[in-house]
């Protein structure tokens, strides 16, 4: 792998983000709006007489982490879609760029974007709602790592599907994370789910990450077992996503789909 070519892919997507208002809104504006809106709501519940509500940080933390997971997954797939929309895919795949370099560049640039967005949002959250945004962010780092790893896996899987079935299935880039949300226990514990769904939810790295987030925020320390289980699941999914993407690209080279992607 060439670090130079990975850096070029990072630069290519940063140029695109900087010049595209839709991308800037996706990275900064909408996540900011989510966190601030639910931050105000949490403040209202705490200070407005709803004494039974005792965990505004958990609500805002869930919003922020879910937003990061969804954005990471979506932006990996949308980054690849941008190459199809602009018919740049031919030039890239006919250049010395290796597939792993492209994927590494895409992961790195989205990691940078998410890091930047979370940093700004954490401070904005503190300034506007009084919730301890930066302190909250520190609690979220370990679950965030699990979620980003799993988000990368889902993003690569969706990207593979786009390459396999063309941009007709591009809606998956935006909606795939949403399919996982009900069973990811973002705002409620695993025990809140109906029994038949619990087994399914328990194997998801997202569920482990959000359970870990809640335990950390309740002051029960860093739940290492939960985090390790989540990380193992996310890494396995990432490996599967990479293998799937590689196999789809090989198949596209055989079938001629790279020549007629639209």
């Amino acid at each position: 792998m060439s670090p130079r070519r990975i850096a070029v892919i990072i630069r290519r997507h940063l140029y695109e983000t900087a010049r595209n208002p839709d991308r800037i809104a996706d990275v900064l504006f909408w996540p900011f709006l989510d966190v601030v809106t639910w931050g105000f709501f949490s403040c209202y519940l705490v200070h407005g007489g709803q004494a039974s509500f005792a965990a505004p940080e958990q609500l805002v933390g869930g919003i922020a982490l879910w937003g990061a997971f969804r954005a990471f997954q979506r932006d990996i797939a949308v980054g690849f879609l941008a190459e199809i929309w602009s018919r740049n895919i031919t030039g890239l795949f006919a250049s010395p760029l290796r597939l792993d370099e492209y994927v590494a560049g895409l992961l790195c640039v989205n990691f940078l974007k998410i890091g930047f967005a979370l940093f700004l949002i954490a401070f904005a959250c503190y300034g506007l709602t009084g919730l301890p945004g930066p302190g909250l962010a520190l609690h979220l780092l370990a679950p965030l790592a699990v979620l980003l790893c799993f988000g990368a896996a889902i993003g690569l899987f969706v990207t593979g599907l786009i390459l396999r079935y063309s941009a007709r299935v591009q809606t998956l880039a935006y909606g795939m994370a949403g399919l996982l949300m009900p069973v990811s226990c973002v705002f409620y514990p695993l025990s809140a789910l109906p029994a038949p769904l619990r087994a399914c939810a328990a194997i998801l790295p997202t569920t482990r990450a959000f359970e870990a987030m809640r335990q950390t925020m309740r002051g029960q320390g860093l739940p290492l077992i939960l985090l390790l289980q989540g990380a193992a699941g996310a890494l396995a999914a990432l490996l599967a996503g990479l293998l799937f993407f590689h196999s789809v690209v090989r198949s596209a080279r055989r079938s001629g789909r790279l020549l007629r992607l639209d």
Partner: peptide, 28 residues
């Protein structure tokens, strides 16, 4: 080697210079 084709294009949001600098980077 290199290729030019009417079926291959470049990202529209990027400037001409940015696009060419990206490919210059890919080809070293």
């Amino acid at each position: 080697m290199n290729i030019a084709s009417p079926y291959a294009s470049l990202p529209g949001q990027l400037t001409v210079r940015q696009n060419l600098s990206i490919y210059a980077g890919l080809y070293g």
